[in-house]
Write a protein that binds this DNA or RNA. Structure first.
Length: 519
RNA sequence: GCGCUGAUAGUCUAGUCUGGUAGGACUCCAGCCUUCCAAGCUGGCUACCCGGGUUCAAAUCCCGGUCGGCGCACCA
């Protein structure tokens, strides 16, 4: 059976599937749900934790140049003042109640139509002007409604007294915790430039319109790091060789604005660098490294990934150049990961606002050198988006014996269970033997599920659906010869091996999963 | 946030127009049977998104809200 993943309904199918299998549910479901917020169920939390662990292992534990950090969710308000988030995100808006229903910046309307400065007016002041001066919608001449203040940040108060001094914000990104904690990290550890500081944590954004299941949400876990270099050596990337051969799909500004080519171009990282498509070598390195991590460790189809450069008009206030790695969802090519070159902007801002020196000192042959480090790359990826991508990419429907088989073909290292153990029959000796193997595998560090419910076929299907890569079945023969059957999720092939080789075999199968798939 | 549209068990759905005992399939649970790919039989659990209104009577009609989808807008 061919499953058309481009269909508009595909994501709804994934949502129903995730709900049914215990991956994700609407939060407060019994009360009707809350838009933009999701709970993760028993299966979802396992997959999620494995993705997170894979990220941390790859980019923190297994690297000499990146250290970890974990900042507070409710953040010192000055942090957002310094970063520019506070001033950039309190736009007063007003809606047209006439024909066009469009939204307008109220401060701009007041300035344009009345030619007065709006800077010192609050929302109420501007509202009075609208009524007094009879301002109308500049689009269609319709009546204007009640104005609102739009801020992307969730606000809260700290302590029992509610006044302006008690206002604090839930962080909309982890990055500012890293920047505001930068001084402490360089003072308390022996990091050497170039290096990165990584953080995985929950962030909050009061999105106007949450959409597409786990894709656009108001609370999510962001895994990101800031990679700092000497501002004079932003292109000194000694590990660039590791990625030069990597083949990626490039969708640069040129492809997006040229009428002639409005499609991405496949090429190697080396060629992209030679053709000056990237402005910074480290940024190219990190994008390529993540591309490989998505395909090799997350098992995501590389043909559905592309590198899209932000247009000038899209760039954030702090960014010199930003590239997204996009995935081709059924609802279009959308950002899976962003990687901005944030320059020295943030550290310099915090240096000014905090009156604390945020420079790095190092000694070389020419003497002592001091500088504010330069963030060449900030690879930033939402955990929920990876989970969604893995579900969308791995969900398959096949026809087996005229019946539908739903199988989640996710990388074995991300599956909620490493292996399931079944007794072929509920006979006491077989049950006991299966229990022994179950306990043995668990003691060996595998995440194991024991299932003796219903028929053997039903158990295989149940585990196909949640992505369990291997099932081990104990039968009468096992009692005689100590052999069991390993059944492979994707191919449904069965192999009979001795119990003593089981652990080794499971590890081999898991480690060679992608290579075996290629053949 | 605006416009259009929808919401019935864990899942898929019938019933809504035309108000009158909410039905089926799959899943799940128990039992029997069977024993390497969702087999069969019997039994069981579980639902009209929420709040008002109209009515003798509302899943059904009306109003408001919530949540989803699509489009627009938004996405530093």
């Amino acid at each position: 059976m061919e499953l058309d993943k481009d269909l508009k309904q595909f994501l709804e199918k994934i949502m129903a599937f995730a709900n049914k299998t215990g991956i994700a549910y609407r939060t407060g479901d019994i009360y009707g749900g809350l838009a933009g917020f999701w709970d993760f169920g028993p299966i979802g939390v396992e997959i999620k934790n494995r993705i997170k662990d894979a990220w941390w292992t790859e980019f923190v534990r297994n690297r000499d140049d990146i250290v970890g950090y974990e900042g507070a969710i409710i953040t010192h308000p000055k942090v957002w003042e310094a970063s520019g988030h506070l001033s950039s995100f309190t736009d007063p808006l007003i809606f047209c109640e006439g024909k066009c229903k469009k939204k307008h910046r109220l401060d701009h309307l007041v300035e344009d139509q009345l030619h007065i400065q709006s800077e010192h007016l609050d929302l109420e002041g501007m509202r009075e002007l609208v009524l007094k001066e009879g301002l109308i919608c500049p689009e269609c001449g319709g009546k204007l409604g009640k104005p609102i203040t739009f801020n992307l940040m969730f606000k809260t108060q700290v302590g029992p007294i509610q006044d302006s001094a008690s206002i604090a914000y839930l962080r909309p990104e982890n990055a500012q915790l890293i920047f505001s904690g930068f001084r402490n990290v360089i003072d308390s550890t022996r990091v050497k430039i170039p290096f990165g500081i990584a953080q995985s944590g929950i962030v909050f954004r009061n999105e106007i319109s949450p959409r597409n299941f786990l894709f656009r949400v108001r609370e999510y876990e962001l895994m990101e790091f800031e990679y700092f270099t000497d501002p004079q050596k932003t292109n000194d990337c000694p590990v660039f060789e590791d990625v030069t051969e990597t083949q990626v799909n490039i969708y640069s500004r040129k492809e997006q604005t040229d009428k002639i080519s409005d499609d991405f171009v496949p090429m190697s990282i080396q060629k992209a660098w030679d053709d000056q498509i990237f402005k910074n070598k480290w940024q190219a390195y990190w994008l390529a490294t993540f591309n490989n991590w998505f395909t090799d460790k997350m098992g995501i189809n590389g043909n559905k990934l592309r590198f899209r450069q932000h247009l000038e008009s899209e760039l954030s206030h702090y960014a010199l150049d930003t590239w997204d790695i996009e995935y081709q969802y059924n609802f279009g090519w959308k950002e899976l990961m962003g990687c901005a070159n944030r320059t020295q902007y943030d550290l310099e801002q915090h240096q000014i606002h905090s009156k604390t020196k945020l420079h790095f000192s190092e000694t070389d042959e020419t003497g002592v050198k001091r500088y504010v480090p330069y963030v060449v790359a900030e690879p930033s990826v939402g955990l929920g988006r990876i989970l969604l991508t893995i579900l969308a990419d791995g969900y398959q429907e096949e026809t087996v014996n005229d019946r539908k088989r739903v199988v989640l073909k996710i990388h074995p290292s991300l599956a909620p269970y490493d292996v399931a153990v079944f007794p072929l029959q509920k006979k006491p000796q077989i049950l006991a033997k299966a229990q022994d193997i179950f306990k043995f595998l668990r003691a060996q560090g595998f995440t194991v599920n024991f299932d003796d419910g219903g028929s053997i076929g039903k158990r295989y299907r149940r585990h196909d659906e949640i992505g369990t890569p291997f099932c081990v079945t104990v039968d009468f023969g096992t009692l005689e010869d100590e052999n069991i059957t390993i059944r492979d999720r994707d191919s449904m092939q069965q192999t009979r091996i001795p119990i003593e080789k089981l652990v080794e075999e499971l590890k081999n199968l898991r480690n060679n999963y992608l290579a075996a798939k290629m053949i």
